[in-house]
Nucleic acid binder design. Sequence first.
DNA 1: TAGTCTATTCGCAAATTTGCGATGTGGCAA
DNA 2: TTGCCACATCGCAAATTTGCGAATAGACTA
Lengths: 106, 106
Amino acid sequence: MSVKRKSTTDAVEILHQRFFKGQPERLKALEEARADDEVARKIFELRKKAGLTQAQLAKMIGTTASVISRLEDADYEGHSLAMLRRIAAALDKRVEIRFVPVRRSA
Amino acid sequence: MSVKRKSTTDAVEILHQRFFKGQPERLKALEEARADDEVARKIFELRKKAGLTQAQLAKMIGTTASVISRLEDADYEGHSLAMLRRIAAALDKRVEIRFVPVRRSA
DNA sequence: TAGTCTATTCGCAAATTTGCGATGTGGCAA
DNA sequence: TTGCCACATCGCAAATTTGCGAATAGACTA
């Protein structure tokens, strides 16, 4: 996510063009990318609502601003539960994971 | 989780003795351990409901049985979103992450 | 313009997770 | 008992994530 170069909204549009208009075999990749984007956006929103800069949040969880920036990058795929929990803990939240059924299309 | 040596229930009891009766400073560690236990159990239940053995699920996501066993271990802390998604995808599910508020006690 | 603040990106080392075979155990059936 | 099957655990290499400083850029203000 960003203030300039690559907004989350843009990322979604780019993804749409890149995958949706392409072959349907790539739908799985789309879903994964979307899920990453979702996590990135959630972290971003959580931080914003808390009124923190990346550097401030970073300090709270014992890391640096560039790490937070990476986590909020819509293209980043390396999220770990451990990291999500560190962020959640700093913001008085807890991470809830659910496996929800997905409609199997034809 | 297991069929013999270390049941999930036992793990919870052990955790209780190890942390709860100990110093309150370790409450954070408790929460983390519990969250891991929760993920482990969810994977276990998902697999069971699908009527699969560890080896079968492993094959579906392109890994081996020992890996699944490790993921279902209540003490394992290394869950990644990528792995959860691989499992979810194999079982026609998707992973939903939520940051839920936690009551800040005195 | 210079200075400051916020955020992105790069590069590489360190830490962590994953892959996977080998080994051991318990349950169950022949 | 012997032979499987399902699972747990160990050990180590390979892959991935994290840590973090440095460089870059846009926005804003003095």
